[in-house]
Design a protein around this nucleic acid. Structure first.
Length: 569
RNA sequence: GCGCCUGUAGCUCAGGGGACAGAGCGACGGAUUCCUAAUCCGCAGGCCGCAGGUUCGAAUCCUGCCAGGCGCACCA
């Protein structure tokens, strides 16, 4: 669409007193296709020319009457707008040729030019089960990783495991008191979770448990061998479990640098804060006063000498910059931690790190129950593993019912089941809270991944039936695509690159997800109106090229969301 | 108490200055001798939380209020 706007910008520049760039900026897409393809609103010219916007539009259309450009065939005034109609044949030829030539590269650009983006995502807390609450960071972060890669950035995915902190003291206490080796080995993560819940139930009545837990965490920080052995075992058991889920989801990280990774850098952070004169003692603890910046104070060190979450985050940020020299660092972490990141970035700035301005918190809303918030402590969680398995099982049942003859039901079920769960998290604006509902999580109709995948599978089916021979592009084909549904579909397909860009820049995978729904809808309308196979040879060829391009757009788009596109389902 | 986020159709949500506010689900009515009906078409359903303001123009920006959610030094 850029080339078209560019042409119109240059066309109008001498006629109105605006730069081509400004005109391109003003151009918008009319709400109805009958109105045209691109509209130039004349409102802003009215006060300058002392004429009504409608009169200006009218005058411009008179000046352009009888003219046509490379891409547009006519310009018509309509109220205060000057509406351009693109030449549908030229447009279809350009768009389809480009998609079919670029193939999997369609939608990608190189505006990143190899610069580095560090993305911190997933980051579950070790020794707790992987709950449904963690899927958002995992899935959104992974989509951003793929999107930035598509823009030519070098992405570094870091899983900032919550593998340090008082919860390990709690687990050690719980295991020493009530633990059973056989039960632990049988189902490690679940068992550790039960111990964690039990600890909190009893800690309400026996406050000395909390005291003991802090004691054991202190020992762990001091390098006590027994504490370390427990920690290391619990950590490894959890990681083994998480890796199964990541494998199933096809998610990879470049580094599993958890909080523990930064232990020997904490002293340096504290020393630096003292040197810079931003840290001071308060009630026995070491704090950074952020009041001049309108933020609550940050604590770097407790009065018992132990460090906190933010101390480790400071060390991690500095380490990441020194190691990767990032152009941007993204933290895909829940919105409830907004203040934490404001404080983190401010302290980095006060420490003199200019790159602090390139650090961004990418927040997302909570997943809640109707009854209220999920809480690991209260054992009130839904395991992601269970959600994924149920989704796959349900997809399998539907396939059994709809397409009993399908050869590979299992891989289709996995693609559809996992796609549904992922899409549920990606399709809505990430900032909104999600109320967890089994029916919604397992829904395969309407605006879901299955809708998109189904359109893709249908296209593949038609292409198979057409003989599967390599389609050859012909510039003449575009002239045969005259139906309204065909032209509408072409217009949608052309949008992929700008949607990918917008999605990445706004850190909102939902923009791409919504767009793919539009593509699938455009295809379905075409499908019902325009038979592909059995139409006359030239038309069939043109339609095969159109659906092949559609297939490519769906595949490319779904890939950027981490969703599989099965050829049959 | 202070701060941040959210409020659009019965429900879940798009749209985030510009042409009559859009989908999905649910309800109702249709479409298959033909490429997968996980589809498509139609119909019904709206003081865009409330009140002011800015603007030629506000669901969209600003202010106040209301409702819900989330935060605010020894958890992460």
């Amino acid at each position: 669409m850029r080339e078209y706007k560019d042409e119109i910008g240059r066309l109008l520049e001498p006629l109105v007193n605006l730069t081509a760039a400004r005109i391109m900026d003003l151009l918008e897409v009319p709400p109805e296709p009958q109105l045209g393809d691109l509209a130039f609103p004349c409102f802003s010219l009215a006060p300058v020319l002392k004429k009504s916007p409608a009169a200006i539009a009218e005058e411009l259309s008179r000046k352009l009457s009888g003219q046509r450009g490379t891409f547009w065939e006519k310009a018509v005034s309509r109220g205060p707008y000057l509406n351009f109609f693109l030449d549908p044949v030229v447009f279809a030829r350009d768009t389809l040729a480009r998609i079919l030539k670029e193939k999997t590269d369609f939608g990608k650009t190189n505006i990143g030019q190899g610069r580095t983006v560090v993305i911190d995502y997933s980051s579950p807390n070790i020794a707790k089960p992987f709950g449904i609450g963690h899927i958002r960071s995992t899935v959104i972060g992974h989509a951003l990783y793929l999107l930035y890669q598509a823009l030519g950035y070098r992405c570094i995915g870091i899983n900032h495991l919550g593998d340090w902190g008082t919860q390990f003291g709690k687990l050690i206490v719980a295991y020493k008191r009530w633990g059973n080796e056989a039960e632990l080995l049988a189902d490690p993560v679940n068992y550790l979770f039960q111990l964690y819940v039990k600890f909190h139930q009893l800690a309400d009545k026996e406050p000395e448990l909390e005291y003991e837990a802090r004691f054991w965490f202190k020992k762990l920080e001091e390098g006590d061998a027994e504490a370390y052995d427990y920690w290391n075992r619990f950590r490894q058991m959890s990681l083994d479990n998480y890796n199964q889920i990541y494998d199933l989801l096809g998610i990879k990280f470049d580094f599993f640098h958890g909080e523990s990774h930064y232990n020997d850098m904490l002293e340096g952070v504290i020393r630096l804060a003292r040197e810079k004169g931003i840290a001071r003692e308060s009630e026995g603890a070491l704090i950074v006063d952020l009041e001049p910046h309108g933020l609550p104070p940050v604590m770097l060190q407790k009065k018992d000498g132990a460090t906190l979450y933010i101390t480790r985050d400071l060390a991690a940020a500095i380490y990441r910059y020194e190691t990767f020299n990032f152009a941007r660092a993204l933290y895909v972490v829940g919105a409830e931690q907004k203040l934490h990141f404001q404080q983190l970035f401010k302290v980095l700035e006060l420490l003199g790190f200019e790159w602090a301005q390139n650090c961004f918190h990418i927040p997302f809303g909570l997943i809640r129950f109707k009854e209220g918030r999920m809480s690991t402590r209260e054992g009130n969680v839904i395991f992601l593993e269970e959600v994924l398995q149920r989704a796959i099982r349900m997809a399998r049942e539907i396939i059994e019912e709809k397409n009993p003859g399908l050869a590979d039901k299992e891989s289709a079920a996995i693609a559809v089941g996992l796609g549904a769960v992922r899409f549920g998290d990606l399709s809505n604006d990430r900032i909104k809270d999600i109320e967890f509902d089994w029916d919604k999580a397992l829904d395969f109709s309407g605006e879901t991944a299955a809708y998109i995948q189904y359109a893709h599978a249908r296209i593949c089916s038609i292409l198979r039936k057409a003989g599967g021979a390599e389609l050859t592009w012909s510039d003449d084909a575009a002239a045969y695509l005259q139906q309204e549904e065909e032209r509408a579909l072409v217009k949608i397909l052309a949008l992929l690159p700008e949607k990918v860009l917008a999605s990445a820049e706004a850190y909102r995978p939902s923009i791409l997800a919504r767009y793919l729904i539009d593509v699938a809808r455009g295809f379905n309308r075409f499908y019902h109106r325009c038979p592909v196979l059995g139409s006359d040879a030239a038309l069939q060829q043109a339609r095969l090229l159109l659906i092949d391009a559609t297939r490519q757009v769906l595949v490319n788009g779904l890939a950027l969301l981490g969703i599989a596109a099965p050829e049959e389902m």
